[in-house]
């Protein structure tokens, strides 16, 4: 019996498939053999693929990364702004806490203000409250530690100017409480204060604390002014005078209190 070409092809086809499907019985062994011989090449191809794909991914995703970067920058700025706002609140809280510890709120009716500008040359400060908030001219301004800063010089609708006690034309009565020495505290400008008209017979020492006295009636009694820094005594003059080192540092002033009533 002669087999035609077509029958031959069909026979080869059937035999090939039968052989192929029978390989499924030894599937694990067959696959293992191919994996074994292909593993080194596959390893290299896998590494290469990773490298090239990583590079291309970077190139194709540049726009996406740019957008993401932009969004992150915006978010970062928002968070920074929030952080600064929270820091401000924290500072304000700390300041109020200090004031409460001293018991300032029991002695005076206070209004918390923030320093928003300085004119050091003229010994002036700009604060963020004015007529609207009930600030009036001549009201004393102090720190949370009960240190006298100055008094309200000018009142605007929403802001006020505070004249520091170191301003040239500022003067008020002061005392050294331990020694009952009374005198005139006078501003010299440029953050300098002097204590004048002190009786010659009284002994004054450096580091003596000067506070406000009730004699002048400009400021409440007992506000801290500063401490004696240098004493100037001369037999030719009727009074002795001293230089006062103020307790406040103008650069560090942030929050203050305006004493509305005492």
């Amino acid at each position: 019996m002669k087999i035609s070409e077509k029958q031959k092809k069909i026979l080869i086809f059937i035999l090939s498939f039968s052989f192929l499907f029978s390989l499924n019985f030894f599937r694990l062994k067959v696959k293992n053999f191919f994996y074994l011989i292909s593993a080194p090449i596959q390893k290299q191809l896998w590494k290469g693929g990773q490298g090239v794909a990583g590079f291309l991914r970077g190139v194709f995703e540049v726009e996406k990364l740019k957008e993401e970067n932009k969004n992150l920058k915006t978010k970062n700025q928002e968070l920074l702004a929030e952080l600064f706002a929270l820091k401000e609140v924290k500072k304000e809280n700390e300041f109020l806490k200090k004031a409460l510890e001293i018991g300032l709120e029991k002695e005076f009716i206070l209004d918390l203000v923030e320093v928003i500008g300085r004119d050091i040359g003229n010994d002036l400060l700009l604060i963020n409250k004015g007529k609207k908030e009930g600030i009036k001219k001549e009201l004393p301004v102090i720190t949370g530690e009960k240190v006298l800063i100055g008094k309200v010089e000018e009142v605007y609708e929403n802001f006020s100017k505070v004249k520091l006690i170191s301003a040239k034309n500022s003067f008020f009565d002061g005392e050294i409480p331990e020694k009952e020495i009374y005198g005139l505290v006078k501003g010299r400008g440029n953050c300098q204060i002097s204590f004048e008209l002190l009786p010659l017979e009284k002994e004054i020492r450096e580091k003596d604390v000067v506070i406000t006295s009730s004699l002048g009636g400009i400021f409440p009694k007992g506000l801290l002014v500063g401490e004696i820094k240098k004493i100037e005594k001369s037999d030719l003059e009727a009074f002795q005078k001293a230089e006062i080192q103020p307790y406040f540092e103008i650069d560090k002033l942030k929050f203050l209190f305006v004493i509305k009533q005492w």
């Binding site: 292909s38 090449i41 191809l45 290469g48 693929g49 794909a53 990583g54």
Partner: peptide, 17 residues
Amino acid sequence: YFLVLFQISFLPHFRFF
């Protein structure tokens, strides 16, 4: 044979493409 290896070991990394 190499094409198949390329297909299964190299190209899968470019799936995102």
